[in-house]
Design a protein around this nucleic acid. Sequence first.
DNA 1: AACACACGCAACCGCACAACA
DNA 2: CTGTTGTGCGGTTGCGTGTGT
Length: 230
Amino acid sequence: MGCKPCEKPKAKHRKGLWSPEEDLKLKNYVLKHGHFCWSSVPINAGLQRNGKSCRLRWINYLRPGLKRGMFTPQEDDAILSLHHLLGNNSTWSRIAQNLPGITDNEIKNYWHSYLNVLPQNLTDQSASFATDQAVPMHFDLPQRSPLPKLLFAEWLSLDEEGGSKPAAYSDGYNQASTSSFQDPFMNGFVFNEGGFGTDLQDLLNNASVNQLFKFESQISGNDFIGSKWE
DNA sequence: AACACACGCAACCGCACAACA
DNA sequence: CTGTTGTGCGGTTGCGTGTGT
């Protein structure tokens, strides 16, 4: 943990949606100081939230490099492929690790939407990983809105950068944020998450889904999962 | 135009685990 | 060894918005 016990103000914690002011406070604090101890973040940042809430907000919403809007077909395939690969052992975070810019929460929500439209027999196959048969990939999946929401954080960027278009919209990744981090913490943070997990990226770049599954079939399941995705 | 319903998403909750005293 | 605390994760809920009637 490495976190000194924090003073424990038994202040009542706010719940519910985050206000722009709270977003700003949290973002500024984490960008400046990092988040070595989440429990102390809300205290030092002047927020009436608990550490868990701050962490969640940062990870799912404020974190630099987050990509919003539609999943690309590659990402669709990657999510399905990874979930198929990992089966019941799949964790959203592990899938998310291989899809930079996408949060586990997004994947989780996406998957639940996906389950809603998926014929039951297919969900059974996919979720249980009971068969080696590849899950059909291109039935009608729920599609995200093609117009990504404009985040408050991006509004801030707009303000700060004199109204320039958020880089996140140009190529899906917030390169402006990436390049502007002087802080070693943030540099490391961003650069570590700056692209697809290399394994997956290679796979996705070089193989169609069918090829991907063909490739997977050449590797024994558990060994592959253990070595590739751990 | 008004209402009901469905859907997507943000956030909370509870649990498991790890680190520390 | 045990209790406490912090972190991370999956599951779930509730609200806002879009769509159909």
